[in-house]
Design a protein around this nucleic acid. Sequence first.
DNA 1: CTATGATTGTCACTATATATGACAATAACC
DNA 2: GGTTATTGTCATATATAGTGACAATCATAG
Lengths: 170, 170
Amino acid sequence: MGEITQRAPIPPLAGRASFLLSQLGTRSAQEFANRLAPLGMRPSHFGLLMHLSQDEGQSQQQLADAMGIHRNVMVGLVDDLENRGLIERRRHPTDRRAHALHLTAAAHDLLPRARRAADEQETQLLAGIDEADRNHLIALLQRLADHAGLSPGVHPGLRDDGSSAAHRPC
Amino acid sequence: MGEITQRAPIPPLAGRASFLLSQLGTRSAQEFANRLAPLGMRPSHFGLLMHLSQDEGQSQQQLADAMGIHRNVMVGLVDDLENRGLIERRRHPTDRRAHALHLTAAAHDLLPRARRAADEQETQLLAGIDEADRNHLIALLQRLADHAGLSPGVHPGLRDDGSSAAHRPC
DNA sequence: CTATGATTGTCACTATATATGACAATAACC
DNA sequence: GGTTATTGTCATATATAGTGACAATCATAG
């Protein structure tokens, strides 16, 4: 090996969009969980309330499909939120197997506060970037998400696509 | 409440940078894990090999510090890679408590293949975006990462900052 | 109307990952 | 020489996620 410069073969891991997205996404998710914790919620709870607020009375299965999670997982989420007095399981008007889920008054009070927490995070995240770049960034991210086949508003961290990527025993 | 338009209060969850980053970051991490799986590695293994390749002979503690993980976790990672014949625990030249970690020939052979897998993912991720926008995107992401206090090349998913965000029992 | 199969919500069980604390060996310090 | 800190290891708790089974109910076929 002659006079090679020795440090050429290292490709900048930190200069790749995929790595940066993974870094920032993980941090962003942690941060959101932390901001939600004082309200007694986890991100999945927030997502459920958001989805439900757009159309109350859905069954657990409907919600699970919309959020991309398994109905078995939905049971636990609904249990949590019911115990915290944020949603109610009522009788479904047409299907006696299913429950009709409804937000309580407490949820209608809490949800805006959670949204404000999200707003604060967004503000802090984008603090160092001017308006034009923010819009450009968000547009680019949306294009990436669309191109990657991600559904708007559906978080893959609560996935149930059967692939089970975290399984191989090394 | 009078004649309000009813659907104004829903802020577009899918239009927030923080949510998009979380979405794309999660997907990106899954995707990378999938691409690495055929090589018998997980992302943390890849990270370890990358860090070690820049300076062989490090102790486990040194590596753990560099990667931002706990030394107890490092034991398992090193076990995995040692069993797969990718690294060796040799005697540390100056500290008989510590091991000096070294890559094997197999690792020097495997690492470029793993890096190529990452390249392919990067290419696919950015497929729909032209050169100028790619550079702009990466620059913006780097600014966000820097502003968020993320160390270049250190993935927070393997964190050990003692905060333990996933603990509150709801 | 009844019989068969599909769907909904629930639960129990399993595996996996993650964190915590203890430990022996060794080093560093005074 | 004696005390304290560090390194690597292990055992254990804890949380999370995935799987399969189940009763109740619905839908459909005959």
